[in-house]
Design a protein around this nucleic acid. Structure first.
Lengths: 198, 198
DNA sequence: TGTACATCAGTGAACGCGCGTTCACTGATGTAC
DNA sequence: TGTACATCAGTGAACGCGCGTTCACTGATGTAC
């Protein structure tokens, strides 16, 4: 027996992964140092290697965990077309645009993942596959045959539009991109475009 | 008079920008060193600061130049719906997926730009605006009113699909993403989806 | 015509800095006997 | 009950390395007079 609660180490690891997720999505993987992540988790840099073998290991954990959480979020939506449309509106909202640290891991980490080592890419591929599945099953039943390509197309549109909106510093331009993305997504989902202002 | 041709320095600068564009798109801005870029341009690291004030200045030049070149490429297409569809097929091709160094700057640099200093973001915003314009004017005339949002939605879809395809190491998955992107783009352009294999 | 100097693109070593990683140590708690 | 030892999460200084940037210098060419 140790002086620590049985789940103490696991809980610390979770704090590190959560802190890293925020930093990586905000500043990029190369722009985030181990020491900063550990400070956010309330620890010092040296403790890192009691939890992870390397920064790459941490990135793999971040990718797996964040994509799984996103999958669970989508899976917990009511199984209606309206719920999926609501998800799209939240995704392409100003709030999401302005808070990458708390947002979609694909939108914030996709290029870092592309350039990363194989285990990280494998973790991403597995996580994305699960998200494609859960989105595809939520599309209109009549579209069952085309559900998968539709889900992939929708995700590509969402990720691209959010990244473009984030790259444009001018609020009017960024809003235009979010709005255009919502309109196209609505077309893709087979709904008449109803486009709220923000 | 100097011993150099009048355009010598300008030509050297262009070589540096071209080399940086390839490195930045391949390895990311943080993953590319000045010394490597200069070596690609046939020079040593010290000469860099005779051409640019900082790495950020170089990035701004890369962004401006690459987006302008992309705009010119699109502008030089015949003004027909078929030509735009052909551009989409080239964009979402295996060749483009597998050669980021020679490809779309938005797909490869968007997240670096988002996190970069204001002058770089401004250069990107101006370059993207020009591309949106030239794409919008090439959409079907009947859609004139909705041309701009359509152009923005198309670009978001292209960028997102290409990035996703690049992040998936499995060839079958990556191909699926490219195919889904082409189908959705065809729907967006108002053409029946004709989907070649690759 | 000859000599001293100006120009200027480029060289290559050096700088300080931040990073990922290592490691000897700490301190609180438990176990052996 | 008391003493020596084991465990283990965490500390914080140190390491080597690569980076962006600086700078004294080179060498080929032109100009001054």
């Amino acid at each position: 027996m140790s002086r620590y609660a049985p789940d103490h180490k696991q809980a610390t690891r979770e704090r590190i992964v959560a802190a890293a997720g925020r930093r990586f999505k905000n500043s990029g993987v190369d722009g985030s140092g181990i020491a900063g992540v550990m400070a956010d988790a309330g620890l010092t840099n040296g403790a890192f290697y009691a939890h992870f073998g390397s920064k790459d290991d941490l990135l793999a954990a971040v990718v797996s965990e964040q994509l799984a959480a996103q999958r669970d979020t989508i899976a917990s939506l009511p199984d209606t077309p309206e719920a999926l449309a609501g998800f799209v509106d939240d995704y392409l909202s100003r709030a999401h645009r302005d808070a990458p640290a708390d947002g979609c891991p694909s939108a914030a980490l996709l290029l870092d993942v592309s350039r990363a080592a194989e285990p990280i890419r494998a973790a991403y591929a597995a996580g994305l596959e699960a998200i494609i599945d859960v989105v595809a099953t939520r599309l209109d039943p009549p579209d069952a045959a085309a559900a998968r390509p539709k889900a992939v197309g929708l995700l590509a549109l969402l990720v691209g539009a959010l990244q473009l909106a984030r790259a444009l510093r001018d609020e009017a331009n960024a809003d235009e991109v979010l709005r255009a993305g919502r309109v196209q997504a609505a077309v893709l989902l087979g709904h008449p475009a109803d486009t709220p202002g923000g």
